[in-house]
């Protein structure tokens, strides 16, 4: 039973990964700091997924990147572009709508059962 739950949760989270990553890029982040930020929020992202994802987002024009060579080791920073900011806001609206709809569906289902 717990196996079923685990796979359903993984599936549910998969679609939210992009929005989670975009949300953390309002301020510039490099790969490892982004992983830490997501981990702090209890989102465990597979690193082999994250780095290629960042590149894809960059290719789509949602984030921009730049190398910072002033620190002890060079780091590639990613930050939301104006387009990325728009998309994040739109995705946020989608997310809120979806959340409301699902809440209504789930709680409405309970009402129906109890009546």
């Amino acid at each position: 039973m717990s196996d079923v739950k685990a796979s359903l949760v993984t599936e549910l989270r998969r679609g939210t990964l992009t929005i989670a990553v975009l949300s953390q890029l309002k301020t510039p982040q490099y790969g490892y700091s982004l992983v830490q930020a997501l981990l702090d929020a209890d989102i465990n992202i597979d690193q082999s997924t994250l780095y290629p994802l960042l590149r894809r987002l960059e290719k789509q024009g949602l984030v921009t990147s730049s190398w910072d060579t002033t620190e002890s080791r060079p780091r590639k920073y990613y930050v939301l572009s104006p387009d990325g900011m728009d998309i994040l806001n739109e995705l946020y609206v989608e997310w809120m709508n979806m959340s409301k709809t699902l809440t209504r569906l789930i709680e409405g289902g309970n009402d129906h059962e109890s009546s």
């Binding site: 790969g31 490892y32 780095y51 080791r73 780091r75 590639k76």
Partner: peptide, 8 residues
């Protein structure tokens, strides 16, 4: 990027 990530 991989180099700096792995070092991190």
């Amino acid at each position: 990027e991989l180099e700096s990530t792995i070092d991190d």
